[in-house]
């Protein structure tokens, strides 16, 4: 993840209000690429995601004079972004798949085990055939093979929308759970449930790959 040290919110806000171009450039470098990726979670289309991001920057620049600092600047910016991205994807999609209509809280409330129940014996311990074994290689070490990266992207892409959003924000973009809860409007416990399921599915895909 792009780790760019930014000044405290009040300083950035004051600089933007003064028309400080360097402050705006620093904000762009810190968030723009990430904003396009987050918008893509909703639009699924890169050109649309870039439009939404551009519109968001306009809204940020125009709205900065009324920004009250009740939330973090980052949360404010990404909330504008995700609201616009949601509206856009709803407007442009003729038929919305049912799963996309579920709120994150609704999705989290459905029961879904991290590991298939059939992997466990009646006493709740692993069966001999299914117990986890050390992977022959660490995915991180194997990452350079491009194959692993492609596999991860594919698995994340196939996750239910809310799980995909949470794992992308937490584990790809490196957001804190507070930031994710604020921007997605999901409770902390449900955010954890969605993250848990998403990670479990990605682990399963890696397990099939590294133990094959």
């Amino acid at each position: 993840m792009a780790i760019v040290a930014l000044a405290p919110d009040q300083e950035i806000v004051a600089a933007l209000r003064n028309g400080d171009e360097a402050a705006f450039a620093a904000l762009l470098d810190a968030y723009h690429a990430s904003m396009v990726r987050v918008a893509m979670l909703y639009t699924g289309d890169r050109a649309q995601a870039e439009d939404v991001t551009q519109e968001t920057w306009v809204a940020v620049v125009k709205g900065i004079s009324s920004f009250e600092g009740r939330s973090a600047l980052k949360t404010w910016i990404f909330t504008i972004l995700t609201n616009r991205a949601k509206t856009k994807s709803q407007r442009e999609r003729r038929s919305v798949p049912f799963s996309a209509l579920q709120s994150p809280d609704e999705e989290a409330e459905e029961y879904e085990p991290a590991v298939a129940p059939s992997a466990f014996a009646e006493d709740g311990w692993w069966r001999d055939e299914t117990h986890p074994q050390a992977w022959r290689e660490s995915p991180e070490a194997a990452f350079s093979s491009a194959e692993v990266g492609a596999l991860l992207k594919q698995v994340i892409e196939a996750l239910p929308p809310n799980q995909r959003q949470v794992i992308t924000l937490r584990d790809v973009e490196g957001w804190t759970s507070d930031e994710v809860c604020n921007v997605l409007g999901v409770s902390e416990s449900n955010q954890r449930v969605l993250l848990h399921r998403a990670r479990a599915k990605v682990r399963l895909a890696l397990d099939e790959y590294f133990n094959a």
Binding site: W135, S138, P139, V172, E173, R203
Partner: peptide, 14 residues
């Protein structure tokens, strides 16, 4: 350990 490795690998996507 595999969950930890999963998190690290997903983080590398960025």
């Amino acid at each position: 350990e595999q969950i930890r490795e999963t998190i690290q690998a997903v983080g590398k996507l960025s």
